[in-house]
Amino acid sequence: MKTLFVLFINDYKRIRVALLFLLILYLITILFLKFGNRQLMMNSIPGFFVVFMTFGTTLAAPAIFGLLLNDDLKYNTVYLLFSLPKKRFMIFFGKYFLAITICLVTSIGSSMCMKLFQEMEYHNDILVDYSQLVILTSMYVFWILGITCFTAAIMLSIKRYRQVAGLVLFVTLMVLSYKFHDMVEWMIKYKIDFLRWNIRYDEYRVMFLIGLFFVVLGHYIYNKFSEI
């Protein structure tokens, strides 16, 4: 286990460039996109919702960094990993353990930041709605993608339960699409500006399709796995 941990620390060290790049991109977006609408009433978002949203990021990161950017598949090191005399579960746990740890820290950190931003916005009445931006980005980019990829990762690691995992994924997506409907409705209610995102009330279906796309992607990756 210790060696696996060391391996994966090194593994993640290698993709720190990608991490950094994403972080910078994220910051630039936040800096340049300004949401001028001051009647957003973001503060009415309950705390647990913020945590829930950021948890999407948490789930997304191991999938993105662990699965998609990971080059085990590309460079055939899976053969090495899979022929090791350790349980597959242990190997995958080891592989993603660090990712999950990183994300938990990030998640808690970003939740705290969001709360802080909310406080700032509330007290200072500033122009840039950081929290809204964070939430929107999380929502559009990470949430669906994250959960889908994470489920896909589970599907890949535990082949035997892939049908169950598929079902869970499907149900998750259904619930998500429903939740999205709710959420969009809620945002309309509070007149959140969707102009920049160019998304209308019923376009949550697009999100659903995006989710489906990732299901297909997950299956593609799974098939690639099953061939080795």
């Binding site: 391996l7 460079y75 055939n76 090191t77 053969y79 090495l80 022929s83 090791l84 005399p85 350790k86």
Partner: peptide
């Protein structure tokens, strides 16, 4: 797997 050394055709090392 504890007693088998598998040398795949391609380079499996990191």
């Amino acid at each position: 797997r504890k007693i088998v050394a598998f040398l795949p055709e391609i380079n499996p090392f990191y």
